[in-house]
């Protein structure tokens, strides 16, 4: 704390901060503008549009009455009017979300599909990252490239590939029909499509982490008598847990928002939330469409919050670790 190098470092940093004043403000302005126009305003607008139709209806229905009752001096009762308008807005919002059977089903479907895809991705991601980082085998680099393929392929094409395999005319179509199983137009197809599209997230996050950590600790655990599962649960998982959680959050966000692949697979028979939003929008039901959109956006914001908390928590842990004094060498 009182080391002599500290003040000079401080003043140096201050100097660097002062020098490019106008550059700093210009850059901040540009960044804030871009974030506002592209992200902040649209997100706020989604929530606004979800409530606004109900509010407008209220004004439309009650607007004349209000004017005549309170006359020109309506400031006292205008609070009540605002409250009423908001209440109607929210009540319409609620109706749009939960009284519409198809919308309700789409929300439930997304809440099943996304976690299922995430679960499959955790299993695949850990297995793939393990294979790629712990073993050297022919075709290893090809495998690494293949993991990235879903990022490069259009989701619509991914959906079509599933139709090709599981559709009535597909490779397994007949066999599935004989055994009275349905993959497309239902949850299995949606989960498969979503998993395919989000396949790289967990593996991509884990490969560099596992590469950096190396296998030394695992070998040490083996030498101490741990079996495979013990090594996995007590050494590997704790070491990769933050990377894994990060991958899961990204994967979940993408899984909930997936549109193209599930659009092809569902063929309008089993909507998830994004598909439902599109459907309602096409039917010119803006209020319903934005209501579902607001739920999806909320889930995205929860993901973002989880990510921020996660990052803050790891930072705090590291700071605490660093604060403990180190004794002199003995």
């Amino acid at each position: 704390m009182h080391s002599p190098s500290k003040p000079s470092g401080e003043s140096l940093r201050r100097g660097l901060r002062e020098e490019p004043g106008w550059v700093k403000w210009t850059l901040i302005l540009i960044a804030v503008s871009i974030v506002s126009v592209l992200i902040l305003i649209p997100v706020i607008h989604v929530f606004y549009s979800a409530i606004a139709p109900g509010v407008e209806d209220y004004w439309y229905e009650h607007g004349g009455d209000v004017a005549t009752e309170s006359g020109a001096t309506g400031s006292a009762s205008s609070d009540g009017n605002w409250f009423g308008a908001l209440r109607q807005g929210f009540s319409a919002y609620y109706d749009n979300l939960f009284l519409d059977v198809k919308t309700r089903q789409s929300i439930v479907r997304t809440l099943i599909v996304a976690p299922s895809a995430v679960l499959l991705n955790i299993v695949f991601g850990i297995a793939a990252a393990w294979a790629v980082t712990r073993f050297r085998f022919p075709g290893r680099t090809v495998l690494i490239s293949l993991i990235d393929l879903p990022f490069a392929i259009s989701p619509v094409v991914a959906g079509l590939m599933l139709v090709l395999i599981f559709g009535a005319q597909g490779y397994f179509g007949e066999w599935l029909q004989e055994h009275n199983m349905q993959v497309l137009f239902g949850l299995p197809g949606l989960i498969l499509a979503t998993t395919f599209v989000t396949l790289p997230f967990v593996a991509r996050e884990l490969i560099p982490v596992m590469e950096a950590i190396g296998s030394d600790e695992e070998v040490a655990a083996v030498s101490l008598g741990a079996n495979g599962w013990q090594v996995f649960w007590h050494i590997t998982i704790p070491n990769i847990k933050w990377g894994l959680l990060y991958g899961v959050i990204l994967c979940n966000a993408r899984a909930m928002g997936e549109f193209g692949a599930v659009y092809v697979v569902s063929a309008n028979r089993a909507d998830t939330m994004p598909l439902r939003i599109n459907q309602l929008f096409m039917e010119s039901n803006d209020a319903g469409s934005f209501a579902v959109a607001s739920v999806l956006t909320s889930l995205a914001l929860v993901s973002l919050l989880a990510k921020v908390i996660l990052e803050r928590k790891t930072r705090k842990q590291m700071a605490e670790a660093a604060r403990m004094e180190i004794p002199a060498e003995v």
Partner: peptide
């Protein structure tokens, strides 16, 4: 016999301590 069954104490060059413990 596998390493775990041999009951050897092995000290690794870079220690390989379990960083989360």
């Amino acid at each position: 016999r596998a390493a775990g069954e041999r009951n050897v104490g092995f000290v690794f060059q870079h220690y390989a301590l379990f960083r989360h413990m």
